[in-house]
Amino acid sequence: MSHSPDSSSLPGTPTTATPGGPTVVVNGRSVSFAGGTVGELLNTLEIKTRAIAVELNQEIVPADQHNDTRVAPGDQLEVVTLVGGG
């Protein structure tokens, strides 16, 4: 994942982690995120489907609370979707 050096300083812009900058962990991967809501984080993750669920520190964040729930540096998130299965 490449990015311009200054993009990591923009709030709500996830990139690969910049050493020393604020990060959150999404699906086991550290990404730069200066802080914001779950909704803001999702917007910048380029997720194209509505078929997702978000877990913040192992608690589900219902869709209607995405824009009211803050994500802080160090938080752990899981963003999951549906795939084929038996």
């Binding site: 380029e46 194209k48 997702i52 999951v80 549906l82 795939v83 299965g85």
Partner: peptide, 12 residues
């Protein structure tokens, strides 16, 4: 049936 898996970020 359907399975739940991590979304591939930046899949596109």
């Amino acid at each position: 049936t359907i399975a739940v898996r991590q979304e591939k970020l930046h899949d596109g």
